[in-house]
Design a protein around this nucleic acid. Sequence first.
DNA 1: CGGCTATATAGCTGAATGGTGATATATGGA
DNA 2: TCCATATATCACCATTCAGCTATATAGCCG
Lengths: 114, 114
Amino acid sequence: MDSSLDSIFSALSDPTRRAILQRLAHGKATVAELADPFELSQPAISKHLKVLEQAGLIRSGREATSRPRELQPDALKKISDWIGDYRRFWDQSFDRLDGYLSKVQGYEDDKSED
Amino acid sequence: MDSSLDSIFSALSDPTRRAILQRLAHGKATVAELADPFELSQPAISKHLKVLEQAGLIRSGREATSRPRELQPDALKKISDWIGDYRRFWDQSFDRLDGYLSKVQGYEDDKSED
DNA sequence: CGGCTATATAGCTGAATGGTGATATATGGA
DNA sequence: TCCATATATCACCATTCAGCTATATAGCCG
């Protein structure tokens, strides 16, 4: 498991993987259920799930012979927090520049990831 | 210019590019200024900037012989909105599941990107 | 136990990515 | 006009990635 900003953003850059997350927003699902909407092979889906899991976006359980997946919100929260630092650039309620520069010190800030 | 969720997330998956964005959060900067903190070649930085620009995360101007870059918040807002759909999974104030399923209809939702 | 079902892993391939040094282009100033 | 400076582009290489088919593993059920 990595769960760095690198791997989270990378995992989210694929539309198949985002679609899988959207499906999981409805609740737990088996690999077969997750694969169903796509014209991809089963191993391709398993690979996507592995990427999502290693990024910390989902986790897998065990139920008889199936291994249902479910959302794990921590990773999404993490990038949400990252984006939060930039919210002032588009959000009116964050539009006061004053006092902002004291919070963001430089490009080194980004290194504070796990 | 692409500016799809694919290209935005993909652009953000590189730590050098996120560091560049962080630097640009302080304000406009030239390519030389952006390249300075890194041990990468100038062409490498230009390539990163191209990726960021094609994702719609930054834009370039012209000032004498330099081409200063600046943040373009639209793309960040776009993924912030995307993440917003999942906020209920970690945010207490969004913890009421009721009425949520009427908003998220399925994986096809994700196709509503430009 | 033996086989069926669900899923994972292995090994391969082609395309994309990130880096390099060399070179091209554009603009302001002497 | 010609040069210096700033930046972009070219051609190349190594690595990563997304897909495939074939095969292996794990757990339930007869």
